[in-house]
């Protein structure tokens, strides 16, 4: 059974299109990523799915139920962690958790098993006010509160924004654990490098889905080669490459240039020829593996 079926969702806010013909499915027990920059429509999409917003048109079935008609049934089965820290910062860790447990008609003890691994990491601070926690700890508390009623499907809106790399890593490990327990997870993030942590991802840009697949497939479909060029004259070489191959063909990356072009024939050899013609001082030219960000750029520039 599909945990989530989204078909042809449109949403506009005063003439601004937030979502345009968005369709995708998420299987039960899947860890699904919505990847896109700020303003791509991730938050609107999640809010529509979890019954907080109404779409202009289109249909969504969550756990087999229509999200518009059966929102009451769905609301108690959804776990949701909004983008901003949305717990009560003047209440303690334990008071927050207790509150959300009671509001969802359950108790901490009843579902302690599910949150044990996460909550035990902050339990020693249970009498501290939530507002005084560090970013990583706030996140763990937020996740505990979202899980306390044992939801069947968990929605996380940009959970890793503003969190340091160590806490981010730990967070993704926690999600993997939850996945093992059979919870379907839908997570949004603006950080392309987090795509590889998901089973499947949808790449969102300006309210439209550009691609849906496993991260590895998306990278495999990156039809062109990505080439790393090292040279002492970075700036000059970059400019020349752009003149010759288009403005999105070359970008600076610290001490090197990343180069790619859509036409297959412009291979590494051709590039070498170009450098010789122009008499550039080139240290090395290597084919490297593209990442999701490279693919994202490729998909963004496909139409133009």
């Amino acid at each position: 059974m599909k945990a989530l079926e989204v078909s042809h969702i449109y949403k506009t806010y005063n003439d601004i299109t937030a979502l345009k013909d968005v369709s995708f499915n998420v299987a039960e027990g899947e860890l699904f990523g919505l990847i896109g920059p700020d303003g791509a429509g991730k938050t609107s999409l999640i809010r529509i799915i979890i019954t907080l917003l109404l779409a202009d048109s289109g249909e969504i079935h969550l756990l087999g139920k229509d999200v518009v008609k059966e929102y009451k049934y769905l609301r108690s089965r959804i776990g949701y962690m909004p983008g901003r820290f949305s717990l009560y910062s003047d209440l303690t860790v334990l008071e927050n958790l207790n509150f959300f447990a009671t509001v969802f008609g359950t108790s901490i003890e009843a579902n302690y098993n599910l949150i044990k691994n996460i909550y035990s990491q902050i339990e020693m601070f249970k009498d501290r006010k939530a507002g005084d926690l560090s970013g990583g700890m706030k996140q763990k508390l937020g996740l505990s509160c979202a899980l306390i009623h044992k939801p069947e499907v968990l929605f996380l809106d940009e959970p890793t924004t503003g969190v340091d790399a160590v806490s981010r890593k730990e967070f993704w490990e926690m999600l993997q654990e939850l996945k093992q327990k059979g919870i379907t997870i839908i997570v949004s993030t603006p950080y392309m490098d987090e795509a590889e942590m998901c089973d499947r991802v949808a790449l969102l840009q300006k309210g439209e889905i550009m691609s849906i697949d496993t991260p590895q497939n998306i990278i495999n479909e990156f039809s062109e080669e990505l080439i790393e060029i090292k040279t002492p004259d970075l700036y000059e070489v970059k400019e020349k490459l752009r003149l010759e191959f288009g403005k999105n063909s070359a970008f600076m990356f610290g001490q090197s240039i990343h180069f790619s072009t859509s036409s297959k024939s412009k291979s590494k050899e051709l590039l070498n020829e170009f450098f010789e013609e122009n008499n550039f001082n080139i240290e090395s030219v290597n084919i490297i593996e593209p990442n999701i960000e490279d693919c994202f750029i490729k998909l963004m520039t496909k139409d133009s």
Binding site: P37, D38, D164, P190, Y235, M252
Partner: peptide, 29 residues
């Protein structure tokens, strides 16, 4: 949070800034 193309254009600006002698000190997560 910015899209990858804008991000690279942004770094282009930074590389231009260092070209005129500005030093850039970046902190990030």
């Amino acid at each position: 949070g910015v899209d990858p193309i804008t991000r690279r254009q942004f770094w282009d600006l930074i590389y231009e800034a260092i070209d005129i002698g500005i030093t850039v000190f970046v902190t990030t997560h």
